[in-house]
Structure formats: C-alpha cells, structure tokens
Design a binder for these strands. Structure first.
Length: 562
RNA sequence: GCCCCGCUAGCUCAGUGGAUAGAGCAUCUGCCUUCUAAGCAGAGGGUCGGGGGUUCGAAUCCCUCGCGGGGCGCCA
C-alpha cells in the first residue's frame, strides 16, 4: 500500500467525485464538503461524511436521500479503505479495519517521514518573522511571532518548500538612532536623551564598546553615534540569536537594513518608482502614492493604499519605507524568491496595503507578498510587581518554564486571538502544560518498545497485523490516518495551531491503548505471545513516529523517558 | 470617524455553510502488587455577545448594535 501524501481524505474525495460523475453530472461540481464526520453517538456516522445529496439536489432535481443512496451504490473506494453508507442526504464513510492495519504497517516502516509531501514543488520562499527593532532583549510578547514564524517554516519545509528564515535588522531608523544616542550618552556617563533606552544593558554595551572601539570616546557624536549604533545592534542581535536558539529557532540570515543603502538597492528602487511615476515631491519631501497612478492602468493593488506616504523626509533623511522598497527589491529581484511570507504583529496591519502597493509598483505580483498577522500579547496588569517584573524577557520565561512548554503555549492559540499573558499563572501552571501529555505518550511508547526487546530478544521479522482487533488499537490507527490531511491543512492555511490539537487527539488514543493493558494484562503490548507482541509493537512504532514528527513540526522535543 | 482582530461550558481556547457544537483546565465519582498514574473511565456544565437577513440548512456568510484589543505620523 502506498501512503498517499494527501491521505485518506483525498482518496475518498476522488472516489466520491468519480461517483458523482458516473451519475452523469457534467456541470461544475459544487463543493461536496467532504470532512470528518461530526456528532452522532459512538461513531455511528463513520469517519468521514459528505452532504453530497443535499449539495446535488438542485443540479439533479432529485431528492437528497435518493441521490445519496445512488452515490453509495456506485462509489468505489480504492483498496477497500472505507465502507460507504447513505444516511438521509449524507454519504458516510467508515475506514475499514483492514485498511487501518495496512496503514499501521506502512507508517511503521516509513519512519518519521509519514505525512511529508512535495506539494510545494520545491518553491523557493522566504519567511521573515519577528524582525523586532534590535534595541534590546526580546520580551514575552516577541515570543509569539518567533515561534509562529518558525513553526510556519517547519510546516512549509515538511510539505516540500525550500524555505529561508530571515530576520530584518533595522539599523537606520528613528528607534535605532535613539538607541545609538543612548549608548553614546552612557559612554560619556550621561543619562540617555528623552525617549532613549535606559536599561542596564545599554550601559554594559557602552562599556564593551569602550574596549572594542578604541578612540570612540574622542569622536564627536555625529561620527561616534553611527559606529556605536552598529556595534550595539550587533551585540543585541547576538543576544536575540542566542535567545531564539534556546527555543530551537535558527535564522538563515540576519539581513541588515544598512545593506539596502550600501548596495544601492534602495536608491535603485526609488529610481524605478520615480520613472514609472509613483513618486512626487511635496513640502520638500518625496512621497509614494496612488495619487499619481492615474497616468496608466496600474491595477487595484496600487490603489489599495489611499494616502501618500513619505519616502524621503524634507530633511533629506529616508524613512523606513524607503529602506523597505530596497528590501523588497533584494528579495524579489536580487535574491529571486518566488514568495515572501511576512509574520507581523497586528499593530502593523495598516502597513499591509502600503507594502502590497509597493510590491506592485516595483513591478511584482502583490500576491507574492503574503502577510500573516497575529494579535498582540498583553501583559496582565497588576501582575507586574517589581519582583515579578523581572520576568518579562523571553529568556527569563524560558528559564522559568522551559522551551517546550513555551512553544506549546504559544502554538495552541490561533494567530487571531489576543493573548492575555498572566506571568504568575504561566509559571505556576507550567507543569500542567498539555505538552507533557503528548510527550508522556511518546515516552511511554519508547519504554514499551524497550521492555519488549528485553522480554523478547527475538521477535518475528514480520508482524501479522490481523491480530490488531481491539477498538482502542484501531482508534490509534484511525488517528494516524488523519495525520496527512492535518499537515496539509495547516501548511496550506499557514496555521500551525492545528498541529498541537491533533497531537492531543493522537496522544489520547495512545494513552487509552496503553491503559487497556493496565486494566487487563492480556491487553498489554508486551505479552507472552510473541506474534501478538510483534503486531502491537508495530502499532507503537507507527504512533511513536507520528508523534515525534508532529512534535518536531512544533519545535518541541520528543523525550524517550520522563 | 475609518480600518483590522476577538466575543463559543466556571476559566483558557478549537471548530474551511452541514447532522445531536468539542478539547484542556477547574469541580464531582471511581481506578495503581505486574509494560511509566505527567495516565485511564465516568458525571455535571452552552439562548455559540444582542437583533435582523440570506439559505433546504448558520457558531460559520451579509447587515446592524454592544463590549474588549490593535491601528490610522516626515514613528516602526
């Protein structure tokens, strides 16, 4: 049996579509909404269901139950993977025990590759995430974008994309200049300017600069600040890199904003926009805006932004937007990524139309810039006592709770929900984190396999899968059957939070399966009968591989013992 | 004022127009001499923010109102 990369859902969907065609439906099919069967008692509706009868009633001018009945009669599921039953206007599908057993054998043999696909066709894409102003350590709020971004990368890699992880290092904007000025002030034993950075780390960086940049103290501020700024940013970048590394996150490139000026990319982008009439001067500044676009048909995307935006200030200084123009050129032209995925906090949502407009104005397809917005992480007020206030950095959170629970905590929430972060609760409840439930299931499976090899040094080479008959055994197999479609949906929708919810379900099935052996010793995996042991081990192996794979996709470890 | 996100069980949250809306935590009741109890089995708990509309069918789509969060700068 082959493991369909699209999984069993795709198999059934194809069979259903063919069946509908065989009824003589020529027109475009409505969405038959094949999905997991919901509701009902004791799985009476099977595993998958489609309201195909209801959907086709209009087209065929026939009663839904009649259509569903006819479909059930003609449908042919490959490999006898499922049985079919019409109930009302629905067509219900139940995975067969036989197919589930074969699936287990395939997954066990496949190892951790189960669910992997080449859907992406090797598409080269870049994911830029968590490009926080490098002016200080990451705090708890920054954890969300980093973990979300990295998990999206993992999903895309697993589904056949060529992914590059990038951090855009702001170095020439207002905030980083303030940062540089603050370091300059500390270097000379003064207080940072208004709106500057006051943390202890600023002083530490100033002291380090005194050693590493000989003569820096003698320079006037105009000359010293840029040097100090680049030095300080480098220091902060190193710290950020170390912090995210603790969360299993490794960037491929730290792309400095300064590079778009040194390489001439930004001026080139500006020239291009000027030539195509997207730029104009007003009040001594240079503006980008759709107000000029009437000269030719430049498309909806350019019109999306309804206000002009400053590119070069009247004082001659470029805005961040000017840098971004060069940055876009670097990614879509210089480096030639097919798509760029941006992971931004919701506070940047107003920037989306502007960037899309810029992409279009530079001559690229705005669809190639995909922006994932996630809502904010708010620190619960009142919890931030002086003492607790020390634990606002991501490093400190990882110190207190550990990387795995932190990743799991963030990944459980869809990007659309605002997180109210309760620090005390996070710390006191960290041992109740659902991550342990999943990891424990994995560790149990490993342990069982170890026990088996001790008790039965010589087991049959091949497993007789027909020995798997109990509902709790087949339920584990059933969960395994769902994995490919979970991965596909998560990758297609760029929604990693689907993974931990699946892991929860799989772990539940595993724990139930394991626990059957606590109730009745004949139901243990390791029993006197080596044939039976062998078959159950096959199931353990398949489940273990799949758990491991799912945890990997979340960047969470799969411990062998707990 | 305009734009984006949210409002689902006591709490935190899943839920791509389908059937009787789910999970974890919390609460209550059971289960460890034998492969890991960080586990298992069971119970209670819901006008899916309010009101209209579209549809054979709405937590899901549309309109409207309310509440909470975010944004609307020659900041990023």
């Amino acid at each position: 049996m082959t493991t369909p990369s699209g999984g069993i859902r795709e198999l059934i969907e194809d069979a259903l579509t063919s069946a509908v065609r065989s009824l003589g439906v020529e027109v475009a099919l409505p969405d038959l909404e094949l999905g997991r069967a919901k509701g009902g008692d004791r799985g009476e509706r099977g595993d998958y269901a489609s309201p195909a009868g209801l959907k086709l009633a209009k087209v065929l001018r026939e009663a839904p139950p009649s259509i569903a009945g006819r479909l059930a009669g003609v449908i042919s599921i490959p490999h006898d993977a499922a049985t079919v039953e019409a109930v009302g206007g629905y067509v219900n599908f139940r995975l067969t025990a036989d197919w589930l057993r074969r699936l287990v054998a395939t997954v066990a043999a496949n190892g951790p590759g189960y669910g992997r696909s080449q859907l992406g066709g090797g598409e080269r894409l870049q994911v830029e995430f968590a490009s926080i102003n490098p002016t200080g350590p990451l705090h708890i709020g920054h954890g969300r974008g980093t973990i979300l971004g990295d998990s999206i990368c993992r999903l895309l890699e697993f589904t056949g994309h060529d992914v590059q992880r990038e951090y855009y290092v702001n170095s020439d904007n207002t905030q980083t200049r303030r940062f540089g000025a603050s370091v300059y002030a500390r270097l000379h034993g003064k207080e940072p300017p208004e709106g500057g950075y006051t943390g202890d780390y600023v002083t530490e960086i100033a002291e380090a600069a005194r050693r590493d940049l000989p003569g820096i103290e003698g320079l006037p501020e105009e000359e010293a600040e840029p040097k100090l700024r680049m030095y300080a940013i480098q220091k902060v970048v190193e710290r950020i890199s170390a912090t995210v590394a603790r969360l299993n996150i490794h960037y491929d490139e730290w792309f400095w904003e300064s590079r778009v000026w040194e390489s001439g990319l930004a001026p080139r982008a500006i020239d291009r926009l000027r030539e195509s009439g997207y730029l104009k001067e007003r009040d001594g500044a240079l503006w980008f805006g759709p107000a000029l676009e009437e000269e030719d048909g430049l498309g909806e995307q350019v019109l999306a932004e309804d206000e002009d935006r400053v590119v070069i200030r009247s004082n001659g200084q470029p805005t961040y937007f000017a840098s971004d123009l060069g940055y876009l050129l670097s990614r879509f032209e210089e480096r030639g990524y097919n798509r760029v995925i941006e992971v931004w906090g919701a506070d940047h949502h107003g920037y989306v139309p502007r960037m899309k407009s810029a992409v279009a104005a530079l001559g690229f397809d705005p669809e190639k810039l995909v922006v994932i917005l996630h809502q904010m992480v708010n620190l619960k007020e009142g919890k931030m006592s002086k003492r607790a206030g020390r634990f606002v950095t991501l490093d400190e959170l990882v110190d207190r709770v550990g990387s795995d629970p932190v990743r799991y905590f963030y990944l459980l929430r869809s990007p659309d929900t605002t997180i109210e972060f309760d620090l005390e609760l996070a710390i006191t409840q960290s041992n109740e984190n659902p991550v342990y439930y999943a990891q424990y299931a994995h560790a149990r499976l490993v342990n069982v396999e170890v026990t088996a090899s001790e008790r039965h040094p010589r087991l049959p080479d091949r497993a007789d899968m027909s020995l798997l008959v109990h509902p709790w055994e087949l339920d584990v197999a059933r969960q395994l059957a769902f994995w490919p479609e979970i991965v596909q949906d998560a990758a297609r929708l760029l929604e990693p939070h689907r993974i931990p919810y699946y892991v929860q379900d799989l772990a539940t099935a595993v724990h139930r399966f394991y626990h059957a052996g606590n109730e009745t010793s004949e139901h243990r995996v390791v029993v006197d009968d080596i044939e039976l042991t062998r078959a159950r081990l096959e199931l353990c192996r398949a489940a273990r591989h799949t758990l491991r794979t799912a945890l990997d996709l979340m960047g969470v470890s799969a411990p062998e013992r707990m």
